[in-house]
């Protein structure tokens, strides 16, 4: 403030005085806050501090490495899941086709050894094969 007195500076002094008065009153008020309120405030502060990203005592290099690794992990997780899914599908497909081949094997071997099971005559494919082969 300039030393010369103007209406504004007088006003400012009065404002400042009022500000100090209000400040003292309000500070007296906050000193008498209810215990549940101060407990909630304390809990809020603890919660905020618990949310700090790094705990004291961790080495910076180690934490950088760890955070880099966790970043990589986060990025790789969807890829790994997709890869796993593809593996499961391939394996399922493989076992299904193996089962199919096995079931065909029985009929084929029976045909070759000329011990046709009764089921073979019920098979429409067998009928047409029979007709085909007898025509040749």
């Amino acid at each position: 403030m300039t030393p010369q007195q103007s209406p504004y500076s007088l006003d400012f002094a009065a404002e400042r005085e009022l500000g100090l008065f209000v400040r003292n009153q309000l500070n007296a008020g906050t000193a008498q806050l209810d215990v549940p309120v101060t407990e909630r405030l304390f809990a809020a502060r603890q919660a905020a501090l618990a949310g700090l990203p790094t705990q004291a005592g961790e080495l910076s290099l180690a934490s950088v490495g760890r955070s880099g690794w966790s970043w990589l992990e986060e990025r790789l997780r969807p890829l790994a899941m997709a890869f796993g899914l593809v593996l499961v599908l391939l394996a399922g497909n493989q076992t299904l086709s193996l089962q199919h081949i096995e079931s065909q094997e029985d009929i084929d071997s029976a045909l070759l050894s000329d011990e046709l099971p009764i089921d073979a005559y019920l098979d429409r494919g067998f009928q047409s094969w029979l007709a085909d082969s007898s025509r040749q």
């Binding site: 806050l33 101060t38 502060r45 501090l49 790094t54 961790e58």
Partner: peptide
């Protein structure tokens, strides 16, 4: 870095404790 983290934690705690009621 460790000292800094610890210091900022203490500073933050002190600051919040001082300002929370207001």
């Amino acid at each position: 870095a460790t000292g800094q983290t610890l210091a900022s934690r203490i500073e933050l705690s002190d600051f919040l404790a001082g300002v929370e009621r207001r």
